[in-house]
Structures are given as structure tokens and as C-alpha cells.
Design a protein around this nucleic acid. Structure first.
Lengths: 195, 195
DNA sequence: GTTTGCCGTGAACAGATGTTCATATAATGA
DNA sequence: TCATTATATGAACATCTGTTCACGGCAAAC
């Protein structure tokens, strides 16, 4: 037997990545075998290696693409204006962007330790760049006298942790709409940074 | 060959759990084999089964003991008084208790998906009980007019997420002392819940 | 209509996996 | 001193692991 009718690289490739994403997110990188990914796509194991050099690259590529897309989306959305407006925009952006990509986010925060050392530094740098944007907003606000924060760097981490928590419990169709969730979190963030 | 001189169950047992704890925390449950745990303790694999029924029980026992101890520590420390004092006490308690047990905390939040379904519901219930204590403080505060929160349940989760973040970056001997970190977080929590 | 090369299969590899068990010794209690 | 028990070994098990590769058929290019 050989390739079945109508299969093409530009279809199978994304399907492999999508399957890996879903499986890594739900069971964890180490618990997912290449054979599980293959059978999810409807292939034999060997065929996966037409689309990835190895399992590690599959993980790295997923995280890298996610963070690249995140930074790009930020670059396009980034508001100018006073720090309070920028902070609100950042909060809303983070909650919405992450809610739309729960699997990517989950992997990016959970599977860091399964990256090879070289891959880890790459991903860490991208993550720091994103978190640095929030820190810059907070520092600007402190300088302008709008925010009252002794340690903007620590506060940035605290806010990111808080916002990331949304993805661990929020489910569409639940008691609260995403608009309502966003409003609750923004109220807390706004008050937390104000004097 | 058989058992080597001076080995005893009440020494080896804790050593097995300690090794499992350290390895699970640093590499993840799925990535740690029973042989790795055994060699960390200086045993052959088979001997581990004198101390645990299987690998899954090892994980469950670690998480269960951690959460039981956490709830017990809470029960002893729980302050009465007005909601603001109770919230401050909870914040300080959480940061300190978790900082002292980074491995246990890490496992309790990261390895939930590697629990069998039956074990998961047990652990989830314990975790909900802990988070419920914070929610109760917030609800009391809202009732008393001290706090201004539209959704105490959501706010409780937000605060827990924020506080948990400390363990992901805080390291002893860093730029900030734990007292300083605690102060920064408490300022943010206090302002976030106030009107 | 023939050739080319992409995209699969299926088997093989060397080693790792969780778990069980017959066996052997050291420590304990009689 | 001897029998018992607790605690370890080491080998075995069936299965799974990531990765490689010779092979073959399909579809497009000439």
C-alpha cells in the first residue's frame, strides 16, 4: 500500500501540528507518543517524519509559532495614549487572545521544562518580550504618577499570573460571558495598580 | 544478594516519596520512570513496590498529603476578625506556605491531568475546599461593605492565580526578600478588593 | 505516455516502560 | 540458638518508545 488518494503535504502537515497541539495540551508532551499523534491523524508513525524532524521540534515549533503570533498581534493592537488606557487595552487583549487559543497557551506555560536547553532560551526570550510590554506600561504609569507600584517588574508578573488563570477555569457557555469576566478582571487590575 | 545492612522500611519509605516528589516536580510525572526513582534512592525497581502499590498511587499520595497538610495548617492559622485582616492573613499564609514547599505546590497544580479519574475528584475536592476559604473571606467582606467585588468567586480564583505565580519566579537569595515580595502582593490584593 | 518525485506503508531497531515474582539475606523475637 | 519476618535483589514479562528506511503507488510534469 502507499499514499491514499487525495492526500497532500499542505493538508497533512497542519493536521499533524493540530493533533500534536491538542494531545500535548490535554495529556502533556511526555505522555503523548508519536504513534498517538499519527493515529489521531490517521497515519502510520513513519509518515510523521515527513513533517517534523523529531518530537522535540514538534513541541518547539508549536510554542514558537504561538509566541510569534502573539507578539505580532500585540504589535498591531498596541494602543498609544495614557498608561491607564494602555493597561486596559493590554488586559482585554490578553484575556481575549488567550481565551481563543487555550491549547497553545496551556502548552506555552506547561511544557517549558520539556524543551531542550537551546530551545528553552529561545522561547523564554519571546515570553520575556511579551511580559516586558506590560512592565513598560506599568513603569510609564508609575513615572507619570498614575500608578502606585513599588516594584513594576513584580507587579507585571503578578498581573500576568492572574490573567493567565482565566484559561484554567473559564469555559464558553458558562455562567459568565467573556465580557463579564473581562470586566471583573479589569476592575481588579485597575484598582490594584492605582494609588 | 538481598537487603543491605541497616536498611529499614521507615527510612526507605520516606526516601522513596522524597525522591518521587523531587523528580516529579522537576521533570514531570510522565517523564519520570520507576527506575529513575529507584536509582535516586539507591534501590532496584522491584523494591519500590514495598512502598507503593503502583506509580499512580505515588503521585496521588504526594498530592493528597500535601493538600491535607495545607488544609490542616489553614485550620490552625485561620484568623478571626474583620475581612480585611483575614484576607491579609490568608495572603501572607499562602505565599509563605507555598514558598516553603515549591515541589509539592508545583505538582499539585501541574500533575492534575495525570491523576486517574477517581483520584482526580478527590484532589479537586480538597483544592476547592482551600479556595473556598478565600471565597468566604471575600464574600464576607462584600457583605460587610469593606470589599467591592461583583463576583467574589471569580475574584477568589484571580487572587489565587496571582499568588501562585510567586512560586514560578521567586528564588531565595534573589533581589527581593520574601517579606518584600509579600508586601508587594499584599498591596495589590488589598487595593484590588477595596472600593 | 512516460518519467519524476512526493507521500505514504510496514517492518525493523535498540532500548525503556510498569509490574511481578522467586529467591536470599539481615534483623527481630522466642 | 533458631525460626520468622521484613526488605532487598535480579531477572523476566509484554508492551511501548522515538526513529530509520527500503519499498511502492499516486499525481503531476514533460
Amino acid at each position: 500500500m502507499a499514499r491514499t488518494q487525495g492526500s497532500h503535504s499542505d493538508i497533512t502537515g497542519p493536521r499533524v501540528r493540530a493533533a500534536a497541539l491538542r494531545l500535548f495540551a490535554s495529556q502533556g508532551y511526555a505522555a503523548v507518543s508519536m504513534r498517538k499523534i499519527a493515529s489521531e491523524v490517521g497515519l502510520q508513525v513513519g509518515a510523521l517524519y515527513n513533517y517534523t524532524a523529531d518530537k522535540q521540534s514538534l513541541l518547539f515549533d508549536l510554542m514558537n509559532e504561538h509566541l510569534q503570533a502573539l507578539l505580532e498581534a500585540r504589535a498591531n493592537a498596541s494602543a498609544s495614549g495614557d498608561p491607564m488606557d494602555r493597561l486596559q487595552e493590554f488586559t482585554a487583549f490578553h484575556i481575549r487572545y488567550h481565551e481563543e487559543r487555550p491549547d497553545e497557551v496551556f502548552i506555552a506555560y506547561m511544557e517549558l521544562r520539556n524543551l531542550s536547553p537551546e530551545n528553552f532560551v529561545v522561547i523564554e526570550k519571546l515570553r520575556d518580550r511579551y511580559e516586558g510590554e506590560l512592565e513598560a506600561i506599568l513603569s510609564d504609569g508609575v513615572r507619570a504618577g498614575v500608578f502606585d507600584l513599588a516594584e513594576p517588574k513584580v507587579s507585571a508578573r503578578a498581573i500576568i499570573s492572574m490573567l493567565n488563570g482565566v484559561t484554567t477555569w473559564y469555559r464558553r457557555g458558562g455562567r459568565l460571558s467573556l465580557d463579564e469576566v473581562e470586566a471583573v478582571y479589569w476592575e481588579m487590575v485597575r484598582k490594584a495598580v492605582s494609588r
